[in-house]
Write a protein that binds this DNA or RNA. Sequence first.
DNA 1: AGTGTTGTTCGATATTGTCGTACGCCGTTC
DNA 2: GAACGGCGTACGACAATATCGAACAACACT
Lengths: 253, 253
Amino acid sequence: MAKDQYLIQSVSRASAIIEALSNHNTMGVTEIGKFLGLHKSTVYGLVSTLEHEGYVQQNPQTGKYALTLKMFEIGGKVFGKLDMRKIARPHIEQIMLKHRETAHLVVPDGLEIVYIDKVECTQSMRICSNVGKRMPFHCTGVGKVLLANMPVEQVDEILRKKGMDAFTENTITDYNLLQKELEKIKVLGYAVDNEEAELGLRCVAAPIRDINGKVIAATSVSGPKVRMDDEKIKGIVTDLMAMNEEISAKLGY
Amino acid sequence: MAKDQYLIQSVSRASAIIEALSNHNTMGVTEIGKFLGLHKSTVYGLVSTLEHEGYVQQNPQTGKYALTLKMFEIGGKVFGKLDMRKIARPHIEQIMLKHRETAHLVVPDGLEIVYIDKVECTQSMRICSNVGKRMPFHCTGVGKVLLANMPVEQVDEILRKKGMDAFTENTITDYNLLQKELEKIKVLGYAVDNEEAELGLRCVAAPIRDINGKVIAATSVSGPKVRMDDEKIKGIVTDLMAMNEEISAKLGY
DNA sequence: AGTGTTGTTCGATATTGTCGTACGCCGTTC
DNA sequence: GAACGGCGTACGACAATATCGAACAACACT
């Protein structure tokens, strides 16, 4: 594999040290050196760097090094996201089957939202989408419901940096109008996208909260306007909110 | 701090990439470069190395990189150990109070055992010990109970490399005699140190198992021979084994 | 079809990381 | 108490590496 020719030795060595420490409670500099076949001065530089970055700590009394919990913390961020997708999947499958429209799972990522899962309905006319796709917040149901539940400063930063481009003639591009919309969403507990991202497309979105009540993701059901009338949307809202409470409960950690 | 002058730039940079990826779901090479102020060729070498070491993976379709669960796995080893000590602490405090002798928590670490926690009794004549202290397996109660519950090859390696030094005239230094002793311990489910590590000192030890039944630690109660008669030892055995089952249950993960 | 952006490749070279030597500290042995 | 050995740490020379500029291929967009 071509990539192997660009490997950086010091990073590989640092990784080897981490692995060694993960299999021993503590190790000294010389011990690590002997274990890995490295000079102790080399090891000293590497563990000093890992210590500076927070991955290891030295016991002042014994001089031995041990891993800290930093990797667990960083790894926990990844695990948490994997968990959510796995837990949400059967739920969005179910809501797709019941309402026969495409369902999505979306997370905020910096200045945009990212679709991390989707279950497309089987009707010929359906909303197709791509996992991994990024969209702005302001013009999607999921985006608006996420904005409605985040701190004002963060909302302002996102809108300032990304702007509020018009995707259709229905896209809300006025800051004050969007603020009013977000307030409404906050009260209702869900958002509706009325052909704001795409003409002919309507969607309903609701938030997923973590154990502290913080909104960490959103789900949505999207369909063509001709099928997504107000009555159907009403039914979807009820099921979506109940579903998301179940997802939140299962995520409790 | 003097250590800072020995920091290794590439390891620091790799760490910065990991942090960046932990706060974004996915990032491309150029994006990481811009985010961290690094040349994209530099970033390419670093993420290739992190990928090779298993910390990141590239989505073949989008070309973007994301963290894997490896950090969670490595970090989990650290977290697991921290967990054990925290969970065990109130238990060994309690057994110390009941039997009025020093209690220990010990883990295997390479070719030796390490005391990771202790609760000393309050009597003037007591067994004092040090957290962090390392001892050989063959001459301690906790060491013997750990040996009795590990694969034979591992036992042989430990004994071959560390030898079986005599600490007292009671230390078992004959391989075959030790094998018989370990078989007995396996059957009984606990070990007794009859002045093998130190004259005048007796101790009882029992194993702590993980969710798969694998022995991962041991606890012990130690006291002077004049107090630790057979009847007292019998009472300690009962409580120690019950205690360790409770600890194991609480560790279930 | 043209353009722009990205990830990847390659090689020159500046910079870094390695390692040999030395030092201070500490524990052990006599 | 002295001597010794092993450890972690410090320092500097220099060989080896990591960086980065240039170029290329692939892909998405218009």
